[in-house]
Write a protein that binds this DNA or RNA. Structure first.
Length: 484
DNA sequence: TTGGAGTCAATATC
DNA sequence: GATATTGACTCCAA
């Protein structure tokens, strides 16, 4: 915090992420001095509420507003999170203002969170109320004509405070606003010297090695939702705590899900092509919602009842479209298409199976190349879910050739979880046996789109490979040994 | 109890 | 030094 006692955040009652990061009262406060009502609104899109001020916005114009940010969020019309983050980044960059300052002063978030938000904003409709809060704050801030000035002032004050602290002009205990203060205190060096009270509570951060991550990714490909048993085995094989493995799976699912949400964004400067989530290096084409809906109702997509292709695909398409979120036609349409395409490819799999009974070795390679192109985690649940409870995974490190030393023995249940329908109508611009072809599409798109498509297809191929293997195992009741 | 969402904060990278 | 990544954590809902 730049100020030792910034004015209280708009909603004192609600949770602030950290005592260290208390936002100033942002635009709410600014309304006291700049009574420019139209500039303080949330930037209502024309379609929302007829473009008129909502009660929340009206309240914003009153300095004594009793409304907290949560109320504002609850009453806020849909905001374009991408546009907001884009604009915020622009303003911050143009004015040489850092994410940390902005986050702590305006959003009440730490730098890492701000970075995350700015580079990977979720669509508004995918956000919880709490998740929308920062975007409302950003919008309010953007609408404040003096936003930059205020932030600059804070920057100056923060610098002053820092210098004072640094040169002992201020008692060290008097302000805890700067993260640097704390980080100094908890630096490993100090911690190890027991010079800091925090050292007694702070655990050293676990840093997973590349091999461990790789192994976890591969395990994830097999079981995105591993059983306790699997987790424990993974943990012991990798010499990690079970909690670490659990956390890793949580985080990975969550982050992959978010990557999926980013898929098909319009070409703002957070172009989906350019900020892929590193753990996966690539992204997945399906969303969480899709994942769930595909495994839902009467079961899974892997119905044991043979479905006619012609019946299945339109149904799936319709379902995907029906449940797809309203609005954002461009993005969503794009995502929709890829999801449907991916799904339809997945359902085609049984057909492929017969064509590639002996292709396990061949299939393995793309799977193992997960650093390059892991399968869509999100969609994977849909595909793997039926097998989930039936996958017995055992790890035998010594026998594995690759470095993490992991081997899984997969013993799926018999065919109740098995395959779906055979041939489906081919999605446009894909070939009939594309699922094992890493680059099935002709380069008919722009280089950027083409790369994206290729990547997506690789992922689809991987997904199908996995499904293929699971299906085979299920059908043959055989045990597959999956090498890591 | 489990999983998703959101976040912190240490660390890595630019 | 600023930003990105990521393991860990809290909260909440099912």
């Amino acid at each position: 915090m730049a100020q030792s006692s910034p004015s209280p955040p708009p909603s004192p009652a609600e949770s602030h992420p950290s005592p260290l990061v208390e936002p100033v009262s942002l635009a709410l406060e600014s309304s006291k001095e700049n009574q420019q009502p139209e500039s303080l609104g949330l930037g209502l899109p024309p379609h929302s509420e007829g473009g008129k001020s909502t009660p929340s916005l009206m309240a914003l114009h009153q300095p004594t507003t009793p409304l907290g940010i949560q109320e504002l969020v609850a009453m806020s019309p849909e905001l374009d999170t991408y546009a907001i983050t884009k604009k915020v980044k622009e303003v911050l960059t143009d004015n040489n203002l850092g994410q940390r300052l902005f986050g702590e002063s305006i959003l009440g978030l730490t730098q890492g969170s701000v970075s995350d938000l700015l580079s990977r904003p979720k669509p508004w409709h995918k956000l919880s109320l709490k998740g929308r809060e920062p975007f409302v704050r950003m919008q309010l801030w953007l609408n404040d004509p003096h936003n930059v000035d205020k932030l600059r002032d804070m920057k100056k004050m923060e610098k002053k405070a820092y210098l004072k602290r640094r040169y002992g002009l201020l008692s060290t205990g008097s302000d805890s606003d700067s993260p640097s203060t704390r980080s100094e205190c908890v630096s490993p060096a100090l911690a190890s010297l027991d010079m800091c009270p925090y050292s007694q509570v702070k655990k050293p951060r676990v840093v997973l090695g590349a091999e461990e991550k790789e192994a976890l990714r591969k395990a994830y490909l097999l079981e995105p939702y591993p059983s306790q048993n699997t987790i424990e085995m993974l943990a012991s094989q990798l010499n990690l705590k079970t909690n670490t493995v659990i956390n890793w799976f949580h985080n990975y699912r969550s982050r992959m899900r978010r990557e999926v949400l980013m898929e098909g964004l319009p070409d703002n400067d957070t172009d989906a092509e350019h900020h892929s989530y590193s753990p996966s290096v690539t992204r997945s084409p399906q969303s969480d919602g899709e994942e769930r809906r595909l495994q839902q109702p009467s079961g899974h997509i892997h119905s044991s009842r043979p479905l006619s292709a012609n019946a299945a695909l339109p149904h799936v398409k319709q379902e995907a479209i029906d449940r797809e979120d309203e609005g954002e036609e461009g993005r969503e349409g794009y995502m929709r298409q890829s999801r449907v395409q991916c799904f339809s490819m997945a359902v085609q799999f049984p057909q492929l199976k017969s064509e590639h009974e002996d292709s396990i070795a061949g299939c393995r390679e793309p799977l193992l190349d997960s650093g390059k192109s892991p399968v869509d985690p999100v969609s994977f649940k849909a595909s793997s879910e039926p097998c989930r409870s039936s996958l017995e995974v055992s790890l035998n490190s010594p026998s594995a050739a690759s470095s993490p030393g992991l081997m899984m023995s997969v013993s799926p249940v018999p065919s109740s979880s098995a395959p779906i329908s055979p041939s489906l109508p081919n999605p446009p611009s894909t070939s009939t046996n594309h699922s094992l072809d890493p680059n099935p599409l002709p380069p008919f798109q722009s280089p950027k789109l083409n790369r994206s498509t290729q990547r997506r297809n690789e992922k689809m191929a991987n997904l199908n490979n996995i499904i293929h293997r699971l299906e085979r195992a299920a059908n043959r009741e055989e045990t597959l040994e999956w090498e890591f």
